[in-house]
């Protein structure tokens, strides 16, 4: 059976605002511990959705399920109208060419130069000749402001530069959708602002974006819509203005970055003296 996967060009012809991602009723547990409890999400072409939440809220698991890297226990994910996890591997591979992933800290291969890192998906997934690949690499590095750094090794780059190379690599195949996993994690405020602007610039090109972050400033700057995950559930959803204005104490504590509030802190499980003197 021949599987018809819409080409990037066909996708381009979709009207602005066409739905490219839909998740319904996603549930996931590990060892009996519920991580996601019925998540519903959608994304339209050119839209930026931010999934925010503190560490352990389930947002990275949610992202992995949206990308097809993990299967939910219940629920479904449709990417570009196709049901992830229920299509043949060949069709899933074709779908994977239509989205890019920006990992925390760039996740570059340390043994490859900047250029070779960016070229990696082009070499692995296309039949483009090497000269054309080298031009695309320069175009993508120019897009992230790193043209001229092709020959450097990852060890010679700052954290922000690594992240930008990671974005250039994710852009290599001209994706219609980008997933960002904590893109500003560990970066200084200036570089966080650079990456935030870059995410915004890329989404203006019509690329849909799903950004997982706990960086509120960056989240509010890039999002068209935000959802807040808390203990595996969506507890708030809205535009940046709606989230800024919310009076929900849970969301307010997160947005304001306060220690006091309804979000419980992880506290010591045992008493120090008992632990030290208890003979354990």
């Amino acid at each position: 059976m021949t599987v018809k996967v819409p080409s990037p060009a066909e996708q381009e012809k979709l009207p602005a605002g066409a739905e490219i991602l839909r998740a319904e009723g996603i549930r996931k547990s590990y060892d009996g511990h519920r991580v996601l409890s019925g998540i519903d999400l959608s994304l339209r072409k050119g839209e930026t959705l931010v999934i925010m939440g503190r560490s352990g809220s389930g947002k990275t698991t949610c992202l992995r399920i949206l990308m097809g890297q993990e299967r939910p226990d219940e629920g479904s994910v449709h990417l570009f109208g196709r049901p992830v996890g229920r299509i043949p591997a060949k069709e899933m591979n074709a779908l994977r060419r239509r989205f890019g992933v920006v990992f925390q800290s760039g996740a570059l291969l340390n043994s490859l130069t900047v250029a070779d890192n960016v070229a990696l998906p082009l070499r692995e997934l296309t039949k483009l000749d090497e000269k054309v690949i080298r031009i695309i690499v320069k175009m993508k590095l120019d897009q992230v402001g790193l043209l001229g750094f092709e020959h450097l090794m990852p060890a010679q780059l700052s954290g922000g530069m690594k992240q930008r190379v990671g974005i250039a690599r994710a852009l290599a195949l001209d994706p219609e959708l980008l997933f960002y996993d904590e893109p500003t994690s560990g970066l200084d405020p200036v570089m966080t602002a650079v990456i935030t602007k870059l995410i915004r610039d890329i989404s203006r090109l019509g690329v849909g974006s799903v950004v997982v972050t706990h960086d509120m400033k960056s989240a509010l700057a890039v999002a068209d819509r935000l959802v807040m995950l808390y203990m595996g559930e969506i507890v708030a959803e809205g535009t940046p203005d709606e989230i800024r204005a919310t009076q929900d104490p849970l969301v307010r504590q997160f947005v304001d970055g306060r220690a006091e509030g309804p979000i419980p802190l992880q506290t010591a499980r045992v008493d120090l003296l008992e632990d030290l003197l208890g003979g354990g």
Partner: peptide, 8 residues
Amino acid sequence: FMDSSGIA
């Protein structure tokens, strides 16, 4: 439609 590979 033309993508980056076409431009390159």
